[in-house]
Amino acid sequence: MDYKDYYQILGVPKQATQDEIKRSYRKLARKYHPDVSQETDAEERFKELGEAYEVLKDPEKRAAYDQLGADWKAGQEGFKPPPNWNDDFEFTGGGYTTDTGHSADFSDFFESLFGRRPSNQDYGAGVNSRTRPLRGEDSHAKIHIDLTDAYQGTTRSIALHTTQLDDNQRPKLIERTLNIKIPKGIRKGQSIRLPQQGNPGINGGEAGDLYLEIEFNPHPLYSLDGRDVFLKLPIAPWEAALGAKVKVPTPAGEVEMKIPANTSSGKRLRLKGRGLPSQEPGDFYITLEIVLPSHLSAAEKALYESLQQAAADFNPRASLGEQR
């Protein structure tokens, strides 16, 4: 997937005002409109112009696009959005249509940044739309929480970035802070709805809603799959051979677990119902990893040598067909 320089496509500098972007788009759109243009690549150019204008005409998308930085150049291959590049950035909800009202078909590059959504509701349609109250559009943002937040539920303060036009009609970032309640058991990909925290209404209409999509911060111990939680647990060779009772850390506190004797490295054990809480809670899975001491004393080395002699008939690679 190639990076697209939307400023270059529209022939405007990065510092262009919104009016300058609009004028350039209209001029180029007339030139490359497939119904009138004689250019051989008119259809493709017209499509590119529409995509570039969709981003740069919208202060929110334009400010977010600018966050990618100046390191990427038009035509550069192998583009991938930086991880979490648009976290805590607030976008107006709704989908994407061209100026003619038809559903837009945008590139993979566009969808990797802004996704694909259903068509916008026509908030301005109907009789007396200029005077009657109209509800504001919904907005959405992605936020990161800790795993313990989902286990316990909590209230926390978050900062969201959105945009507004300055006196020169250029978008600038602004920040607003909200206190939100994170419900116990919330999962990755679910959304928290904040009523009337979206875009303001028109003519006295109520504001839209704000939807916060949940992502989890990386954890040094645990990984997640839906409601299930996973942990790699180091154990000593003698614990694997003889069995043992060990304490296992979980996001809800320590749990004592029995390791069966003759346990191999990689064996998975399950603590039922110890995953993310819910009416049907997830499970907590422990993968055992046998770990040797980083340094063997002379006495320890002698014990391993004695074990080697005592277990001379044991071949751990017999299943591979390896001969002694």
Rank of each mutant, 00 (worst) to 15 (best):
M1Y: 09
Y3V: 01
Q8G: 00
I9A: 00
P13Y: 03
K14P: 00
Q15S: 10
A16Y: 08
T17H: 01
T17V: 06
Y25Q: 03
K27E: 13
K31T: 15
V36F: 03
S37W: 02
Q38M: 07
T40H: 07
E44F: 10
E44N: 12
E44Y: 11
R45C: 06
K47Y: 09
E48C: 00
L49H: 06
V55H: 00
D58G: 12
D58W: 07
E60V: 01
W72L: 01
K73P: 00
G78Q: 06
F79D: 00
P83D: 13
W85A: 07
E90N: 12
T92M: 04
G95P: 05
T98K: 14
T98F: 10
T98Y: 15
T100V: 13
G101E: 12
G101I: 05
H102P: 01
H102D: 15
D108Y: 06
D108M: 13
F110A: 02
P118S: 14
P118Y: 05
S119W: 05
S119C: 13
D122V: 07
Y123T: 02
V127C: 04
S129L: 06
T131P: 01
T131K: 13
P133T: 07
R135W: 15
G136C: 01
S139G: 12
H144T: 06
D146T: 04
L147R: 03
L147E: 09
Q152I: 03
R156V: 15
S157T: 15
H161Q: 14
H161V: 09
T163A: 14
L165K: 10
D167M: 04
P171K: 07
E175D: 06
E175L: 09
I182W: 06
I182R: 03
R187K: 13
K188P: 01
G189E: 13
I192N: 01
Q197R: 11
G204K: 14
Y211I: 03
L212P: 11
L212S: 15
I214A: 09
P218L: 13
P220W: 11
P220G: 12
L221K: 13
Y222R: 05
S223P: 03
L224T: 05
D228C: 10
K232M: 09
P234W: 08
P234Y: 07
A236F: 04
A236M: 11
A236Y: 06
P237R: 07
P237F: 10
E239L: 01
A244N: 14
K245R: 12
V246W: 02
A252M: 14
G253A: 10
V255D: 00
V255C: 00
A261M: 11
T263R: 09
S265Y: 08
R268C: 13
R268F: 03
L276V: 09
P277R: 04
Q279Y: 05
Q279W: 04
E280N: 14
P281S: 15
I286C: 08
T287D: 10
I290V: 11
V291P: 00
S294W: 10
S294K: 09
H295V: 14
L296I: 07
S297V: 03
S297D: 11
S297C: 08
E300A: 10
K301T: 11
Y304M: 08
Y304I: 02
Y304L: 07
E305H: 03
S306E: 15
A312N: 15
D313A: 07
F314K: 08
